[in-house]
């Protein structure tokens, strides 16, 4: 498999407090990587660094063969291949439709016949058709999260970073979102990283799984071996619910 990201000696500090310290990590094209870990482990920080929304304090992130870090940032064209759906989705104060087409407009894309049909199909798959003209701030939590995912999928990013995309959602909404994630990886062969607290969700979705604890990557592995025979004691503790912080 072709690596999309190769991380080496990545450090992130906030006011002299180190929150992330990953010696090495690789993420591959065509995989769903499930990132797990207790609260405050540094999962969201890692996502911000992978999306180049923040600069690392030290270390290198190699993205699609280009090395970034130490003051070197990717250009907008490169950054536009990546997107994050945050845990608390934020939509613009406009209609759902305008929200979904927003990334396309940013890229100067025409939303004409064929493209419009594609977007309408996407909304239909996500059960959002009836809300497309509704103002985004009138949507429910589940609808908002689905709209945020539709907005991310609409421009077919090469990397999709999902920060607890289904936390606090009901089973129906979780089902729709997980189905869309699976379909996207199958159809587009891109890379998805899902941060989740939910072991069952990681089992359902991920190809490989990793555990982050106190900013350090404890273990990564194929789903089966990670869950059935973890190498590290910390992983075993986490999976059995004994690792709180």
């Amino acid at each position: 498999m072709k690596p999309v990201y190769t991380i080496a000696n990545l450090r992130k500090k906030y006011q002299n407090k180190e929150v992330l310290n990953i010696d090495n990590m690789q993420l591959y094209q065509g995989e769903i990587f499930g990132l797990m870990g207790p609260s405050g482990a540094g999962k969201s920080t890692l996502l911000r660094l992978l999306d180049f929304l923040e600069e690392p304090t030290a270390g290198v992130i190699e993205f699609k063969g280009e090395r970034f870090g130490n003051g070197r940032e990717p250009e907008l064209k490169q950054k536009r291949k990546i997107t994050t759906v945050f845990q608390r989705s934020a939509l613009l104060r406009t209609s759902l439709w305008n929200n979904v087409v927003y990334p396309l407009k940013l890229r100067g894309e025409e939303i004409n016949g064929e493209k419009k049909e594609e977007i309408e199909k996407l909304l239909e798959q996500m059960g959002l058709t009836e809300f497309k003209d509704q103002r985004a701030d009138k949507l429910s939590g589940g609808e908002t999260q689905r709209a945020a995912l539709a907005r991310a999928l609409v421009f077919e990013p090469e990397v999709l970073l999902l920060d607890e995309p289904t936390s606090n959602l009901d089973p129906t909404n979780i089902g729709i979102i997980e189905e869309m994630i699976k379909q996207y990886i199958k159809k587009e062969n891109k890379m998805i990283l899902v941060v989740t607290h939910n072991i069952f969700q990681a089992r359902r979705l991920a190809d490989r799984v990793g555990l982050l604890h106190q900013g350090q990557l404890v273990e990564t592995g194929e789903k089966k071996s990670f869950f059935n025979s973890p190498e590290q004691e910390l992983t075993a503790k986490f999976l059995s619910g004994e690792l709180v912080h």
């Binding site: 999306d51 929304l53 907008l76 950054k79 536009r80 990546i82 997107t83 994050t84 945050f86 989705s89 934020a90 613009l92 927003y102 990334p103 940013l106 890229r107 945020a148 907005r151 991310a152 421009f155």
Partner: peptide
């Protein structure tokens, strides 16, 4: 931050 992540 979301807008930035979407490519603005």
């Amino acid at each position: 931050r979301q807008m930035e992540s979407l490519g603005a």
